[in-house]
Design a protein around this nucleic acid. Structure first.
Lengths: 146, 146
DNA sequence: CTTCATCATTCAAGTCCTGAACGATTTGGA
DNA sequence: TCCAAATCGTTCAGGACTTGAATGATGAAG
């Protein structure tokens, strides 16, 4: 019958693991009063893939209205600048400020520390393979991956 | 400076990928009127690791009160049986029924289908390595992994 | 047998997110 | 040129999900 064990499916494992890691990341971010999605938004801007808030919403897979509140908070922190696009005054163009770049770097460092903690004891080779494979999957899933 | 790119950290990648996959799984489960956590509970029972609701709560990393409502729903579906432990009448012992096992199997199959979709085009070897590595990480994280 | 801990349950509250409604702006025809 | 429809951002009410505190039942220790 080819019985499948739920816990060994990628769907389930990535889901549960992802939830735990997101929680940990969230805890680290508490110091900055940020949520993972705020940092995700910074990363989208840093990648240069986005311009308008709607672009960001599509890339992040969230409702446009959520981007509004995320951007509100980040603007308040001075991490992003919000300007009307002169060519189309309906669009709000978000750009990363120097502070925003620093903030993103700090958060990326925090994530890297969590990575190290997670991978402790794992062989270096396996870690690199994992990173690469996940990158491929992220791309195939339409997620920002580099 | 060793600048770290956020999107290439496992923390971020596993987090975002996990969220997407959980959404997809959730969509599949809608047919059964179940959420991923319901299925997670079934899996915990199937593993034989748990007995009381509190055990389940600890394993799943959720509040005991949440287990109550999850179990309510599953009992209503006839997927689990709920009995007071004769040796300690405070404890509610959850056990999988035959229907519960079938339901879990169906959900595991759905997850496996999503896996196939996700891995389409990926080399078989990489997929198996990925599965194994994630299993290791799950174990190191205190998550149910076989 | 009294006191304290443990387990399940209920319930109110908090967080996070979405979708509908609105105003401002742009676009594509009549 | 002018108007109808589409697009973008924003606000806001509501829904889904989860937790923590309060309660009652049961058990354990002295």
């Amino acid at each position: 019958m080819n019985a499948v064990k739920l816990t060994s499916t990628l769907t389930f494992r990535l889901g549960t693991l992802g939830a735990v890691l997101t929680d940990r990341f969230s805890a680290r971010l508490a110091a900055h009063d940020l949520k993972p999605k705020h940092v995700g938004l910074l990363a989208v801007l840093d990648s240069g893939a986005a311009a308008s808030q709607l672009d960001v919403a599509r890339i992040m897979n969230v409702a446009p209205s959520l981007v509004v509140s995320l951007a509100d908070r980040l603007e308040e922190l001075g991490a992003v600048r919000r300007e009307r696009d002169p060519a189309d005054r309906r669009r709000q163009v978000l750009t990363l400020t120097a502070e925003g770049r620093d903030l993103l770097a700090a958060c990326a460092r925090a994530a890297a520390e969590l990575d190290a903690e997670l991978l402790e004891g794992l062989d270096q080779d396996g870690a690199e393979t994992l990173r690469a494979t996940l990158g491929t999957l992220a791309r195939r899933t339409g997620l920002p991956a580099d």
